[in-house]
């Protein structure tokens, strides 16, 4: 409770700003899809398009939230300027692992909240298209998005432990830029990853890549584990 209160007070502004940005993107996307006549005739195509955009945005917001909103006061690189109040935080009778995980959990809840908002909008969106997709399709999309968001978010968490704020901003920006260019150029591995992560592959083929899912989950766990170990070993 203590750490939740502390974490909430620390991240609430960034979280609210993130949610506002997310809501803006979601609403904009909703109107563009509603007016897309081609999407009205093909539910699978519509769902696939929606989820692809949703996944990319969710990954970006997740990484940014992890990088800028969750851990900045505890995890900055030792070579960077030490955040002003970190000494107060570290002097509290709480382990570093608890401090880290409480903030990480709060950030994860923020990512989840963004997903819930989008999911709540999906039935409305689908109603204006060809019709609602099946529950199986929807749950599949949600599952894949959750895994993709967790991957980006945990990568962002690890980034906060390895880089300074400024460097991490560049890393996230560069990753987003490279991803955007790759997607624009239809770079094979990236397209396959996006199709997999967004659930588009599942929706079009009905096949679940369990190996892909397992790799994503394992990667996320390793990122979080590495981040915790880094924080526990860090010297301030």
């Amino acid at each position: 409770m203590t750490l939740a209160l502390k974490s909430w007070i620390e991240v609430r502004r960034r979280l609210l700003i993130g949610l506002l940005g997310w809501a803006f993107v979601t609403v904009t996307f909703y109107f563009s899809m509603r007016d897309d006549s081609a999407a009205h005739s093909d539910t699978a195509r519509a769902v696939s398009a929606i989820c692809s955009v949703e996944t990319v945005m969710l990954m970006c917001f997740g990484a940014i939230l992890a990088g800028s909103g969750v851990m900045t006061q505890l995890c900055n690189s030792a070579s960077a300027r030490m955040p002003d109040s970190v000494l107060f935080t570290l002097a509290l009778p709480v382990s570093r692992r608890s401090l880290f995980l409480s903030r990480a959990l709060l950030g994860a809840l923020g990512v989840l909240l963004m997903m819930v908002l989008f999911w709540a909008l999906l039935p409305v969106l689908f109603a204006s298209l060809t019709g609602a997709p099946t529950l199986r399709v929807l749950l599949g999309a949600i599952l894949f998005q959750l895994v993709a968001a967790a991957l980006a978010y945990s990568f962002g968490l690890l980034g906060t432990c390895l880089f300074s704020d400024m460097t991490l901003s560049w890393v996230i920006g560069a990753a987003g830029g490279i991803g955007g260019i790759g997607a624009g150029l239809r770079w094979g591995p990236l397209v396959r990853f996006l199709n997999f992560a967004s659930g588009a592959t599942y929706m079009t083929t009905g096949q679940v890549s369990w190996i892909g899912l397992a790799i994503c989950v394992a990667l996320s766990c390793s990122f979080v584990f590495a981040a915790v170990r880094t924080i526990e070993r860090r010297e301030f």
């Binding site: 002003d84 000494l87 107060f88 002097a91």
Partner: peptide, 12 residues
């Protein structure tokens, strides 16, 4: 208990 030299707390 500890009071750091900078005395910085959470500004927000």
């Amino acid at each position: 208990a500890f009071v750091s030299e900078s005395k910085d707390l959470y500004p927000f």
